[in-house]
Design a binder for these strands. Structure first.
Length: 752
DNA sequence: AATCGTAGTGTTTTT
DNA sequence: CACTACGATT
């Protein structure tokens, strides 16, 4: 154990040794907080003789949980069995699996994701005859979520009588919740809410868990919302051995209900709290860290701290102002290529980097596109972390809906999803009638369908088709008892005709869907090969709670692309942050209020602090957001960086006309070989420069562009032929009509 | 009932 | 532009 502590600095050691009573650890970026947590657990078990089953550690993602477990196991040499390491949501799901019957649900409840939730809300709103345009279902959804995050149940919600939205919301919330019971399903928010309700209603259950959780640790505490906080509070009331670790500067989920206040007020709520601040950063170079400190210092609502590092100074940060997003992508990819294969190969000490060392961060998912296209062009392997999730694909959700229905026949949302997929002649009308009957008789949709076979509630044709469907599901339900999960799924795919249907379609899209389904079967088979078999229920729960980062395999040697949000908790030697623009970062959907702005700044901070050695920032002066081009100003956060840390990478002179240069630059040659190593501040405001085709102009001219010709005046590009110096373009001029010209000699100026 | 086409609509981040 | 929701068409 002595040797274990030797791996830690004195402050980290303190955080490990301080095992009794409430402890608050402010852990700056890269200060080794996971290390502290894992060593702490190992210390508790090895040194203090605490039983693993009395330790409970909460993280935010499954990935973080798995990683923590792995690291603890490594420290303990394998004896980590019994420690409860899990996410908030999985932990709650597990508790509810045990006790949810106390709340009027069945144990085989399903967990609805956001999409299910939205369908559900829409159905409720339709029933209440609410206009979707007046009351956006999504607004309802987020309001309901917010209420749940605050621990407010439908009965406890008292809308203002003067606020029509709130009044409707109360109605929808009430009805929505009733329907969930009928479906025997819960949403994400319920997982947490119901556990608190359970603890309130049944002190003996709370007691059991309090007794179990004698040493509690919470990671990423700055991201907890009110209900998570209450949950933790309840849980540790008895033993009070709670250690929360977090960094208020990395709180980026306020919009989702996270309360930075939880970390800032912790001391007040837990009298006698010891506070430890980890300020030594082991990750980043001096320059990067200085830049990060500088940015985040601008925030008012934070606890003062100053990260420092013993790491070398490192390289200056670079800043590139691109013409547009395509130019930005070209820049980034060119730089990536240089990192992979440095031009100064004669220096043997610089063998180049593997792809996995490099990451590109952006504010919104849509930004990945430009980068992706360029990466594909240069055949650079990449993965997108987050983004559209495997388990959210249509075909996967269809299959899962079948499985959910098999596991829990009350699940009407899943039933509605697949009742006619593939088409089996049960149309909207029929479904609607079933829904009405379900409400009238207060039984589930599936039960209505079963009853329909005996009663004459519906026309015979419909009845027959429903009979077929019910029979199908019943068979699967029987098989679910005997067959393995993958086998059941294979049967399902065959007998519903789902695969057949996809095959008949024969499109590329259908093919990729088939492949995804294959992949799903693989996942199942993989799980089945593990220790015990997986039950249908376990599988469904696991799948419902995967988070976007969880499937991220960093073993593969690829460049990583992700949003700044996804980047939290990761680190890379080389980082590119693109789109440093007003409107994007900070994003314009945020207000100008300090809290909003400060969260955007923290997002920026999170991005910067992911980088170990090399950080490149870029922005585009023009960016097309869904079709329409817009001029973007530099992000205000760029102004907050100390300029002596920045090396500005110059773009080619923009005042040149098309191909007036000697050389022709085919898309990707090393153009930036001799960057000037001067730290210059970019002058803002000089945005009225003449915009002329960039040197690789063969590629920048596009149909639809408005251009100016010295003689013919303004015109619009109708078509383009060729991509080399012989390129010709047909342009419709206002003055003389259509003209076909060689772009090389045309001296065109792009206007938009 | 299913499919096709169009008009209108909206894109932040996600446990 | 990309998606979807809806309406018209078969």
């Amino acid at each position: 154990m002595i040797s274990l502590l030797n791996d830690l600095n004195p402050i980290q050691q303190k955080a490990v040794l301080e095992t009794e009573g409430p402890l608050l650890v402010f852990a700056g970026a890269g200060s080794g907080k996971t290390r502290v947590l894992t060593y702490r657990i190992a210390y508790l078990i090895n040194e203090k003789g605490i039983s693993p089953r009395h330790i409970f550690a909460v993280t935010f993602t499954n990935k973080a949980a798995d990683e923590m477990r792995e690291r603890v196991e490594r420290l303990l040499r394998g004896s980590a069995k019994g420690i409860w390491i899990s996410t908030f949501h999985s932990a709650c799901a597990r508790i509810l699996r045990q006790h949810i019957e106390q709340l009027g649900f069945g144990r085989n409840f399903v967990i609805y994701d956001e999409e299910d939730q939205e369908r559900h809300i829409k159905a409720v709103m339709k029933e209440l005859d609410l206009d979707f345009k007046l009351f956006h279902p999504r607004a309802m959804q987020s309001s309901i979520d917010r209420l749940k995050n605050e621990g407010i149940t439908p009965d406890q919600y008292h809308p203002s009588q003067f606020n029509i939205f709130e009044k409707r919301l109360a109605l929808v919330y009430q009805r929505y919740q009733e329907d969930l019971v009928r479906n025997n399903g819960v949403d994400f928010g319920d997982l947490l809410l119901f556990v608190t309700l359970l603890f309130k209603k049944h002190p003996e259950i709370l007691w059991t868990y309090q007794n179990l959780c004698r040493y509690v640790m919470v990671d990423e505490f700055q991201d907890t919302n009110l209900i998570q906080y209450q949950l933790i509070r309840r849980l540790v009331e008895r033993h009070r051995n709670v250690c929360v670790v977090g960094d208020d500067d990395q709180s980026i989920y306020r919009w989702r209900g996270a309360e930075v206040g939880n970390i800032l007020n912790f001391e007040k709520d837990f009298p006698g709290t010891k506070v430890i601040t980890l300020e030594q950063n082991y990750r980043s170079s001096q320059y990067i860290l200085q830049a990060a400190n500088h940015v985040v210092k601008k925030n008012c609502l934070r606890k003062e701290k100053a990260l420092w590092t013993e790491n070398p100074e490192g390289e200056l940060l670079t800043l590139y102002a691109a013409e547009d997003e395509a130019d930005e992508a070209r820049f980034v990819v060119r730089k990536i290529a240089e990192h992979i294969q440095p031009s100064d190969m004669e220096h043997t000490e610089n063998p180049g980097r593997p792809y996995r060392d490099i990451a590109v961060f952006y504010r919104i998912n849509a930004q990945s596109r430009a980068i992706e296209e360029e990466l594909v062009k240069h055949q650079i392997p990449y993965t997108i972390v987050g983004g559209l999730r495997f388990y959210e694909r249509k075909e996967i959700k269809d299959i899962l809906a079948y499985l959910k229905l098999i596991s829990n026949p009350s699940d009407g949302i899943s039933l509605k999803r697949i009742i006619n997929r593939p088409p089996r002649g049960i149309g909207e009308k029929t479904v609607e009638r079933i829904a009405v009957l379900s409400r009238e008789k207060d039984i589930s949709l599936y039960e209505v369908m079963r009853e329909t076979l005996k009663e004459d509630w519906l026309p015979p044709a419909a009845r027959e088709r429903i009979g077929g469907f019910v029979h199908l599901i019943e068979t699967f339900r029987e098989e679910a008892g005997t067959l393995s999960l993958s086998q059941l799924t294979l049967n399902l795919l065959a007998r519903t005709g789902y695969l057949q249907r996809l095959k008949e379609e024969g499109t590329d899209e259908a093919l990729s869907r088939t492949e995804n389904i294959d992949e799903l079967i693989n996942v199942m088979a993989e799980l089945e090969r593990g220790d015990e078999g997986v039950s249908l229920e376990t599988f469904l729960e696991k799948v419902s709670l995967v988070t976007s980062g969880d499937l991220y395999e960093d073993r593969e040697n690829r460049v990583s692309l992700m949003t700044l949000h996804c980047a939290k908790g990761l680190e890379f030697p080389v980082v590119f942050i693109v789109g440093m623009e007003e409107g994007l970062l900070p994003h314009y959907r945020r207000g100008e209020e300090t809290e909003d702005l400060e969260e955007e700044r923290r997002l920026c901070y999170v991005g910067i602090t992911r980088a170990k050695e090399k950080l490149s920032l870029s922005r585009a002066e023009k960016r097309s957001t869904f079709g329409v081009g817009r001029a973007n100003l530099a992000s205000r956060f760029l102004d907050e960086l100390p300029f002596e840390l920045i090396q500005v990478v110059e773009r080619e002179k923009r005042t040149e006309t098309l191909f007036s240069q000697e050389t022709f630059w085919p898309d990707n040659v090393d153009r930036y070989g001799d960057e000037k190593h001067i730290a210059i501040r970019e002058e803002d405001g000089s945005r009225n420069e003449e915009i002329v085709l960039s040197p690789n102009g063969f590629y920048s001219l596009r149909t639809g562009m408005k251009v100016r010709h010295p003689k013919f005046g303004d015109g619009r590009v109708k078509s383009i032929e060729g991509m080399n110096e012989d390129q010709k373009a047909t342009i419709f001029f206002q003055s003389v009509g259509p003209k076909r010209l060689k772009t090389r000699y045309a001296n065109l100026e792009i206007l938009e």
